[in-house]
Each structure stands twice: as C-alpha cells, then as structure tokens.
Design a binder for these strands. Structure first.
Length: 314
DNA sequence: AAGACCCGCAACCGCGGTTGT
DNA sequence: CACAACCGCGGTTGCGGGTCT
C-alpha cells in the first residue's frame, strides 16, 4: 500500500448533502446507459457535481432497483439479531442475507431501534431471573462486545429448548430463501446461537496448573451455519431472482411517484422500464439490465426539463 | 405559537483490502 | 517489491422532522 492516500476526489466545487431529484435522475440515466464500471469517472461523465463515492453510495443504498422500501418485518429483525450475534458489526454480510436491504439501512436500524429493543428485553428478563446467576467476572472475561449483551440475555436457558422461531427454507439450489415465522412466539432476543453461562461454567478446567476454558459447544442452528458457510464461498442464499423484475417495476413506479412524476392512483401509466424479460443474475446491474427508453411522458418531460442529455460522451 | 429537545436516517469520512502498473 | 488508484466497509456526523414544554 502506498503512503498516505489521495483524496477520493477533488472536493472543491462538488455538491454535498442531500441528493436532489435531478441528480438522482442523472445518476440513474447514466447507470442505465453505461453501467457503473468506474465510480470515480462516473460523476464527470454523468454531469454530476458529486464525488464517485457519493454516487456509489446513493446508487447502492437508495436508487438501485432491487432496494426494498419500507419498514423491516419481524422476520427481518429476527435475522438481523441472529446474524449480528454471530457476525458482529459486519453489516454488509448481514445485508447479504436480507434481499433488498442495505448495510447502511441495517446499521441504522440496529443502532436506532434493535439495540434498544434488545436492551429493554434484557432488563425485562433480568427482572424475572433471580436464581442461578453466573459468575460476573466470568461474564466479562468471556466476551466484551455487543455479542455479550445478547449472550447475557440467554442466561440460564437451555439453548436447545427455545430456539428462535425463524425458519429458513431453501426453495431451490441457491437462489431463493424463504423466511417464515414458525410461530408467533415473541422470540426477538432468543438467539439460539448464543451461549448460556451454564455452558461456560461447564467449560472450566485445569491442566498443568493452568486454568483454561474449553471452547464451549455452541448450539447454532444449521441454517445459520450454512448461511455463513455459503457466504464464505461467495454465495448468498438470499438473492431473490425470480422476483427481481416485478421489484424493478415497483421501484420505478415508486421512484416516479416520489419524484412527483406520476399519480399513484393512475395504474395505466408506464414506468421507466418495462422489461419483463428478466434481469441478469447477480446484485450488480449493468446497462443490459435496462431498457433505455423511458416510457412515462411525464418522466420524459421531467428529464427534458432538468436538461438531462440523451447523448453521452465517453 | 415558539423554542428546546429528541430521534431517525441519509450522507460523509477515513481506513483496509485489492488490483494494476 | 513499491507505489498508486480504486472500491467497499464500518463508524460517525449532522440535518430535518416530530414531540415536548
């Protein structure tokens, strides 16, 4: 690696802060046409006064077609909690198991909502548990991350008896993951992969005058392991492919609505893309994934108004 | 009604890893 | 091997809207 780093871009004269609809459309139009092989060069080619990183972030987190909008479902929250217990703050890894969700979104949800939710649950559970408390010094020596918080909640539970009620079912070889709640149990914090302190206590030992801890056997649901293992092989269970086309359409419709370019009530309006032939597999979209021609007269009008050029110079 | 405060979230920043020369 | 360029990730910031006083 070189010494020091050049700034990612020349920041003088670049826009910062919230993206405007015009900038969004410029970015979308450019990526539709040329893809995003080179983020650094993209803003210049697209006529955007933004740095490449900013464009990339905007596209990945908000503009790409397979983004899922709206609140997280209970099942999604459950998955986040479980995976966070296993992976820690590996937001992108966690996101790879939640189709349509971004690492940034998951990180925000965790920091603003799930963490508090778990904490309050922890308190609730603490009130109900007065016996069989583990050695507190052992607690501290065991783990010092957020994972400990989660594990603390698992005190005195038989990890096999009360597992999280999220069932992950692979519907085909590798492409689709269906998440189903097995029951309506309020199992938010019940990460079956965590360790009970009873388990830890049983791992204490002594050999040759040294006290040691055996690495305890963790009860981790096989589905979670397979998720992680597959992740290590560069595969994700959670890529929904068959639904991509409809999601793309929905996304474009919602984008037009959001930009005030179409009436949500008007079902007859065409959206930017009407390509039902299916998108290419994989997360990254490229130019071939899109039909270039915008179909909505209002969108065309808007593009014209904001002076987005139809020809680009490479 | 207005100011203070809180909170969620979009965006930025800086670092590490990877790739190219 | 050294260096530069770039991408992606995770931590952090700060704006804007909602709620409280």
């Amino acid at each position: 690696m070189g010494k020091g780093r050049a700034p990612c871009c020349d920041k003088v004269g670049l826009n910062k802060g919230t993206w405007t609809p015009e900038e969004d459309l410029r970015l979308i139009a450019h990526i539709q046409r040329y893809g995003h092989a080179n983020w650094r060069a993209l803003p210049k080619k697209a006529g955007l006064l933004r740095c490449g990183k900013s464009c990339r972030l905007r596209w990945i987190n908000y503009l790409r077609p397979d983004i899922k909008l709206g609140h997280f479902t209970e099942q999604e929250e459950e998955i986040i909690i479980k995976l966070h217990a296993l992976l820690g703050n590996k937001w992108s890894k966690i996101a790879s198991h939640l189709p349509g969700r971004t690492d940034n979104e998951i990180k925000n949800v965790w920091n603003t909502y799930l963490k508090k939710k778990l904490r309050s649950r922890e308190q609730e559970e603490g009130e109900h548990k007065t016996t069989d408390k583990p050695n507190s010094s052992l607690n501290e020596s065991y783990c010092n991350s957020d994972q400990l918080q989660l594990q603390n909640r698992e005190n005195d539970k038989d990890p096999t008896s009360d597992t999280t009620e999220v069932q992950m079912e692979r519907k085909d070889d590798k492409s689709e993951l269906e998440v189903q709640p097995k029951s309506n149990s309020s199992a938010l914090s019940r990460c079956s992969s965590s360790l009970s302190f009873a388990t830890v206590e049983n791992c204490r030992g002594e050999e040759n005058g040294y006290e040691f801890f055996k690495i305890p056997e963790m009860t981790i649901e096989p589905e979670i392991w397979s998720m992680i293992e597959e992740d290590d092989h560069g595969e994700s269970l959670a890529v929904e492919k068959n639904t991509t086309t409809n999601e793309t359409r929905d996304w474009l419709e919602s984008l037009e609505i959001e930009l005030g370019l179409c009436d949500p009530q008007d079902e007859n309006q065409e959206t930017l893309v009407r390509d039902d032939t299916g998108l290419k597999e994989g997360n990254d979209l490229c130019i071939d994934d899109f039909q270039i021609e915008p179909a909505s007269p209002l969108l065309l009008e808007y593009l014209y108004d904001v002076n987005i050029e139809c020809s680009y110079v490479d």
